[in-house]
Amino acid sequence: MPIASTTLQHLNTVAQEQFEPCFVYDLDFLRDHLSTLMDQDVVKLWYAVKANPLSAIVRTLAETGFRFDVASEGELQQVLAQEVPASQVLNTGPAKSRRQIDKFIALGVRTFVAESLNQVRWLNEAALAHDVQLQLLLRVQLRWPKGEKNPLGGDSLTPFGLDPQQWRGLYLADYPALQCIGVHIFQWGNMLSADKLLSLWQQMLPPLKALSEQLGFALQVLDLGGGLGVPYDDNSASLQWQDVLRALAQIKRESGVQELWMELGRYAVAECGYYLNPVVEQKENYGEHQLIVSGGINHILRPAVAGQAFPCTLLRESQAKPRKFNIHGPLCTALDSLGTHTLAQDVNENDWLVFSQTGAYGFTESMPFFLCHPMAAEYIIDNNVLHLLRESASANSYLR
């Protein structure tokens, strides 16, 4: 995706005043994008805070009407610190301890996704102790029989939720402080096809509806999680929101639920973020051209985790011929690779690279302490004004 001219001007300003890698988040773009997502009555949208918990990002989402999916006490505290009411919070995540559940309820959270029979019991006990009523969704993990094509993209067992057979042992009448309003299911990621999403959702409906009938609760809410993707290469088309809405509207009709929920992370915030990275040197090894850059997976870990690099461009314009470069960060491990990218062949040690789509799963998914390189600075563009939120910090700021 081309960088808007006004944003590009701000990125150049940052490159002139910084020496170390940094992140820039365009809140003006983000507001426009979120307004488009919210201008509909098909699905209730929650923001998966794990994608980017930056205060300015959270506040911008809250201003546009998003609710918040939090999976840890730290995420909850960060959301509440931005003056988001606890009533706008949904607690997800596989590791809900008794202590965490009690803390969430004490802070006002009333909607939870249960991942296990233990969690149902603990939620009920804590709700009774606090004399409150909780809304509950059961997270379901589906697997298809061996030998059959699995529409959910694989047979890997995960810690998220339970299979329908395990949930069938639940007797909801034993938990008077819980109102079971629906089910939660999410077993895919970064999907770029609305048709594929519709097919997945349609194949999940029969077992989910059967489970609600067997447990004796009305399926008021169907939470489809996240998984809406953004393209990380030039060969992939963007997922169009209107196509997604049409698919969701069809699922809402076919399921008969009162509400559809989704927890968007990447699709909500990825495109507002940029990671600026200065080039250290260009060199050649065994016929391969390499660029060594100042920041790597210590700031953007996704390439090593997902095997998929963030898109990369040269900040300045160049008329030089293009060439493929293998880009490597500063860490003493071969894992520190930011992918293979086609750039102008005259790129040199005075240049900056721009990695886009880093508004999601950027800095807070990284490993910033390894090798004691500087922490990345963070900027925002707000009402076309550039603001420095955090200076680049050396290792002596956290090492004791």
Rank of each mutant, 00 (worst) to 15 (best):
M1Q: 12
M1N: 12
P2Y: 09
P2V: 11
L8N: 12
V14P: 01
Q18L: 03
E20P: 03
D26G: 10
D28A: 09
L30V: 02
D32I: 11
H33S: 04
L37Q: 08
D41V: 04
K44I: 05
K44F: 05
L45W: 04
Y47R: 02
A56W: 03
V58W: 05
T60K: 15
T64V: 14
V70P: 10
Q77V: 10
Q82I: 05
V84E: 02
P85C: 06
S87Y: 09
S87F: 08
P94G: 05
P94L: 01
A95Q: 14
R98T: 14
I101Y: 00
D102S: 11
V109W: 01
V113E: 07
S116L: 05
Q119M: 10
R121E: 15
R121K: 14
N124G: 09
D131R: 14
Q133R: 15
L134E: 01
R143Q: 15
G147F: 10
S156P: 02
S156M: 12
S156A: 15
T158A: 08
G161C: 10
R168E: 15
R168D: 09
R168I: 00
G169L: 00
L170F: 05
L172C: 09
D174P: 00
P176S: 13
M191H: 12
M191K: 11
L192D: 03
S193V: 01
S193N: 05
A194Y: 06
A194M: 02
L198Y: 12
Q202K: 13
P206V: 00
P207W: 01
K209E: 10
S212Y: 01
E213T: 14
E213W: 06
E213V: 14
G227P: 10
V230S: 06
P231K: 04
P231E: 03
D233K: 07
D234M: 04
L239E: 03
V244D: 05
E254N: 07
E254D: 14
S255N: 07
G256M: 07
M262W: 03
G265Q: 03
A268N: 04
A270L: 11
E271Q: 14
L276E: 01
P278N: 07
K283T: 11
Y286A: 15
G287Q: 10
H289L: 10
H289E: 02
H289T: 10
Q290M: 11
S294I: 04
G295S: 10
G296K: 02
G296A: 06
H299E: 03
I300K: 05
L301R: 14
A304W: 11
F325S: 02
I327D: 05
I327T: 08
P330R: 07
L335S: 11
T342D: 10
A344K: 07
D346F: 04
N350E: 08
Q357T: 08
A360V: 00
A360Q: 00
Y361Q: 12
G362I: 01
P368C: 07
P368W: 05
P368E: 08
F369A: 12
L371H: 12
L371N: 15
H373S: 08
M375R: 10
M375H: 09
A376T: 07
A377L: 02
D382S: 14
D382R: 15
N383F: 00
N383R: 14
L386T: 04
H387L: 09
H387S: 10
R390H: 12
A395N: 11
A395I: 12
N396W: 14
S397F: 08
